Structure formats: structure tokens, C-alpha cells
Amino acid sequence: MKIAVLGCGLLGTKIAGELAYHGHRVNVWDINIPALNSVFNVLEDDKKHLREDGILFQKNFVGQVLCMSRLEETVSDAEFIFEAVKEDLEIKKDLLERVSHVCKSDAIIGSNTLRLNIDDVMSGVLNKERSLGLRFLYPVYYIPEVEINPASFTAQKSIQKVRVMLERMGKTLFFRSGNHPLILSEEQREERKALRVEQLLNSSGIPCMFEKKIPVLSHDGNVAPIKETRRESTTVDTECGICMNKARDCLLCPCHHMITCYECSKMLHNRRDGCPICRKDITEVIRVYHS
């Protein structure tokens, strides 16, 4: 798959490396030429560490990373565009607006913003329905979750397209709850890194064929279900999709999704946050008592 990454700071370079690790062809762009020139050194260090951890068996990634100095050439044939430039609203707005006019009309445009309002970031984008917030958690190679933050105009088919692509890489999408991004502690990072390494080792080096599942930060229920597909598994997540501690014991109205415990649902209602699954406004919380 052809992918473009805009911004080759440390995070952008590692996103490009993770995508190439899973076989994608990645064009990387940055206005800063010295930063662009440092990409291959960073990737070589990443490969070294991955080999030391025993999860990179070959010399190079399956996919390819190409450094580009011209923005139009970088995005012209990309199916997915991931922006990871400086956390500045005007810089992101200007860049993504320009990109949207020179890329494919159906290319997905994702911003890796941490705290900026995604509606503001994408306000000038052409065909807004294909744009969204998409944040890779650090360290990128080892954390399977990717935080998605749809704009008010993001189409469900765009979310589904991203979900399918990332799931083929062994990644899991989870919706941002409220206005605050998920920030992992150093202890959480190290724990999940160790589990991810074990998972990849058990898969005999094939990233998408896992024998042991990492305890997730989110659940399948965090992503709106697609009507055409049904789960074949009979197992159902029972833990609250927010605190992941208490049991799911309430329905959110009017959508009737059952994804959280009563305490977390009341918290969402009081903060006027939407349903974690469908993002509809919560008008009422109905307590459910399990026999």
C-alpha cells in the first residue's frame, strides 16, 4: 500500500518505520532538509533495536521508505496520509489544506495531533469527510493501539478504511474519550513493550499472525460495528471500555450501546461527552442488573 508521512521528527520517522515494517511503501516529507537527511540513520537504529529484541529477522523492513523534498510528489499517489508535524494549529491547517488539493480525492488524511481540535485542524481540507485525527502511541513499534479522534464531518467509511488497514498490521483502533488524549506512563509503556515483543516472538516473526493476545487498552466495542460483518467469536468483552476495571452494567440512551460501567457512564453524561462507540449525545443512563 502507498502511504505518505508528513513530518520526519522522531515520531513521524518511527511511524514511517512501523508502516514499512509491515510491508507498506512510505513516502516521507519534511520542509527541514537536515531532518529529512537523518531519517535513514534513525531507521537503521530502530532496525538494530528490533533485531536485538528478536522481532526483526531480516536485514531490512519488508516495505520501503523514500525521502521526498517535494510535497506534491510525496502525496500524489498515496492512499493514506499521516501528518506528524509541529503541534501548531496554523502550520497543520495550512499544510493539510494544501495536501488535500494535490492528493487523490479519496485518500484518507489523518493528523497525529495531541491536543488540537480536529475540526479546526481539518477546517480547510477538501473533501472533509475523509479526514480525522489519528495518533500512534509511543513507542510506535511496540504499542498496538492507535487513538482515533474523528471530526464532526468524518465519514464512517473513512473510519472503516483506516481500521481495516491498521488491523492488518496487528493494530487496534480506540476512540478518544472526552477531550483529553490517552498518555501512557513509563511503566505502562515498558509493560506493553514486553508483551508486544513476546507476542511477535510467538508469531515466528509474522507480525499479523498472533498466538498470544496483548491485554488491550480498549475493546472491540470502542469501534462502531460494521453492519456487513459479524463476530464469529462467542466471547464478549465484559469490562468497562473506559476504566477497564468494573463490569459493563448500563445502557447509554438513545443509542443503547453497552460499553461502560455505571460510574463511567455518569461521568460521560456529566461531562456531556458522546457515546464512545457512535459518538451520539447521551441523554440518559439506564442501570442494568446482572442476575
Rank of each mutant, 00 (worst) to 15 (best):
E186Q: 04
I109L: 13
C250V: 08
L95V: 12
G274P: 05
F174K: 00
M165A: 02
S111F: 01
K213M: 12
F80R: 00
L36Q: 10
G63Q: 11
D106T: 09
V26H: 01
R130M: 02
V85R: 07
C8Q: 04
G54K: 10
K266T: 14
Q160P: 13
G170L: 01
V285D: 08
T235M: 01
I55F: 11
I55P: 09
T74N: 10
I3A: 02
C208P: 15
R271I: 02
T172I: 03
I3P: 07
N41A: 14
L43K: 11
P215W: 05
P144L: 14
K246T: 13
I143W: 12
K2V: 13
L252D: 10
M169D: 11
E228I: 14
E198I: 12
L200D: 02
D88Y: 14
A35K: 13
I277V: 09
C250E: 03
E44W: 07
C264L: 06
Y21R: 03
K59T: 13
H180G: 10
E167F: 06
F210T: 11
G12E: 05
A4Y: 06
R130S: 12
N37Q: 04
R25W: 14
Y142C: 08
S111M: 09
F136R: 02
E52I: 15
N41L: 13
S131C: 09
E211M: 09
S105I: 12
S38W: 12
T234A: 02
A151M: 06
S105A: 10
